[in-house]
Design a protein around this nucleic acid. Structure first.
Lengths: 109, 109
DNA sequence: ATCGTTAATCGTAGATAAACGATATTGGAG
DNA sequence: CTCCAATATCGTTTATCTACGATTAACGAT
C-alpha cells in the first residue's frame, strides 16, 4: 500500500492527498484494533471491571491462552490497553486516551 | 474462532456468553470495514461529495482500479456503502444507517 | 454490429492474521 | 533452591488480506 506509484496526476490540480492519508492511517489502525470479536470483548471486559488480570480474560473467552495473549498484544500495540506486571500476574486496563481518540475519530466521520 | 471448544464451563453458571458475543461480532465487522486506510479514505470521500462515481474514487487513491474495486466490495459487504448502477458507471454512496450504527456502537464503548 | 469506456471479476503472489500446542520466562511459596 | 502458577513467546498450520495485471461484462454511442 505505502508505495504510491499508481494513478493520481502526481502534483497537478489538487494540493496533495497525503495529509488526509496520515489521519486515515491512524483511524484505520485504531479501528483495526477492535476489528475482531475477541478484541471487542476484551475491551468491553476491561471497561466493566476497570482492570483485569490476564487469566480472567482468558476465562471469559472461548480461546486458548496463547491466542488471547496475542490479542492482548495487538491491543497493546495499537495503544488501546496497557498491561502492568503485578507479581506473577499481569493486570490489564484500558488506555482512556486512546479509546477516546478512537471514539472521536469515528464520531467525526 | 467460531469453533468454541476451549475454556468456559460450557453451560453452568452463566446464562450463556453468546448474546454479548453477537454484539461483539457486529461491531468487529463494522470496525473491520474501516480498518484499512484506503477504506477510511473512501468513506471520507463519499461523505464529502455525497455520491461518487467509482472512477473518481480510483483517481483519488494511489491504488490500481481492481484493488479499489475490492475495497469497495468489502465496504459494500459490511453495509457501509451501496452502489447504484448508472449506465456504464457505478455511483457509490454512504449508507447512513450503517455508518450511524458504527458510530453508536463505538460511542457506547 | 462494433467500439470505447467503465467497473467487476479472475488468477496469482506475497504478506499478515488467527489459532493452537509446546516451550520458555517470571515471580512468589514452600 | 525448587516447584507451581501465570504469561509470554515460539513454531507451525491454515486462512484471509492486499495488491496487481489481465480478462470479462455491461452499457452508450457511433
Amino acid at each position: 500500500m505505502a508505495t504510491r506509484k499508481h494513478k493520481q496526476p502526481v502534483c497537478d490540480d489538487k494540493p496533495v492527498p497525503l495529509p488526509a492519508d496520515e489521519a486515515a492511517e491512524r483511524l484505520a489502525r485504531l479501528a483495526w484494533g477492535v476489528a475482531h470479536p475477541a478484541r471487542v470483548r476484551i475491551v468491553r471486559l476491561l471497561l466493566q471491571r476497570d482492570s483485569c488480570v490476564c487469566g480472567e480474560i482468558v476465562d471469559n473467552l472461548p480461546l486458548a491462552q496463547s491466542t488471547v495473549s496475542q490479542h492482548l498484544k495487538i491491543l497493546k500495540e495499537v495503544g488501546l490497553i496497557q498491561g502492568e506486571v503485578d507479581g506473577p500476574k499481569v493486570c490489564y486496563c484500558i488506555n482512556p486516551a486512546k479509546l477516546q481518540e478512537l471514539k472521536t475519530l469515528i464520531a467525526r466521520f
